[in-house]
């Protein structure tokens, strides 16, 4: 489903990803771990199409198409979803209003019929209940004044609402308490599906107890330096990145 080859990415004139290779098949969940500043969020942004992030070499193929050539909203319509490390506040726009606009924009992008307000409301409410997102949060301005955990839960709510094909979760577990972590993991696991791929970025092996990945990649200095099964997370926990990076070198 996703095929990244020799990817070089520059941000603000600085090369951050330096020849990254990664491929994920439909139905799989992959995890990316790596030290701060290694380029994990950069990878997530380049997949989602954030302006200012430039591919200087290499390619990203998504379901046979050149993902790098698509505008971000088209990627979203085609099922690319990024749960952001730092969800953004939009004052004055209620969460519910935002969800409805986004869902319908994606549907329009796919040539599907838009849903009416009541239809969206029903779907959102049902999903919100399972993720412990309160009615009050849906009425408030998007992410404004939300706690860190609330913002992350809202990201997962959007993921389950949009039902993406490729879901990228950038440190969704950071800042979550144990109960929220379990809720989020359940939300993710509920979406596991043979037609869907997921890329989970995390610093903690704890999350991977709940969301068991098919494969783990270690990203350091802009490249994948180690790969393995879920046991790699335990090894990382024990040895630290430094050692793993050295071992790999």
């Amino acid at each position: 489903m996703l095929e990244i080859k020799n990817l070089h990415v520059t941000v603000g004139g600085k090369e951050i990803l330096k020849g990254l290779n990664l491929s994920i098949a439909a139905g799989q969940v992959h995890a990316i771990m790596g030290p701060n500043g290694s380029g994990k969020s950069t990878l997530s942004y380049i997949l989602a199409g954030r302006a200012g992030y430039e591919i200087t070499e290499g390619s990203i193929t998504y379901n046979g198409e050149d993902l790098g050539a698509m505008p971000p909203e088209q990627r979203a319509a085609k099922g690319v979803f990024l749960a952001m490390q730092y969800p953004v506040e939009i004052p004055g726009v209620t969460t519910m209003m935002f969800l409805k606009s986004a869902l319908n924009a994606q549907r329009r992008g796919r040539g599907e019929k838009e849903l009416d307000a009541i239809g969206v409301l029903k779907t959102v409410r049902a999903k919100a209940a399972t993720l412990n997102v309160s009615e009050d949060m849906l009425k408030r301005a998007l992410n404004v004044g939300f706690s860190g955990g609330e913002k992350k839960r809202l990201e997962i709510l959007q993921m389950s609402l949009f039902e993406p094909k490729l879901a990228i979760l950038d440190e969704t577990d950071s800042g979550l308490d144990i109960d929220a972590l379990r809720l989020v993991a359940e939300g993710v696991n509920a979406l596991r599906d043979p037609s869907r791929a997921m890329l989970v970025i995390t610093h903690y092996q704890r999350l991977l107890d709940y969301i068991v990945p098919d494969r783990i990649h270690v990203l350091a200095k802009g490249r994948i330096v180690a790969e393995g099964g879920k046991e790699l997370a335990l090894e990382l926990e024990a040895k630290g990145y430094d050692q793993i990076v050295k071992d790999a070198a």
Binding site: A48, R50, E73, A76, A77, M84, Y86, V88, E89, A102
Partner: peptide, 11 residues
């Protein structure tokens, strides 16, 4: 980042 967030969600 506000703009990117919206675009990422399909707008």
């Amino acid at each position: 980042d506000q703009l990117f967030y919206c675009l990422q969600r399909g707008l």
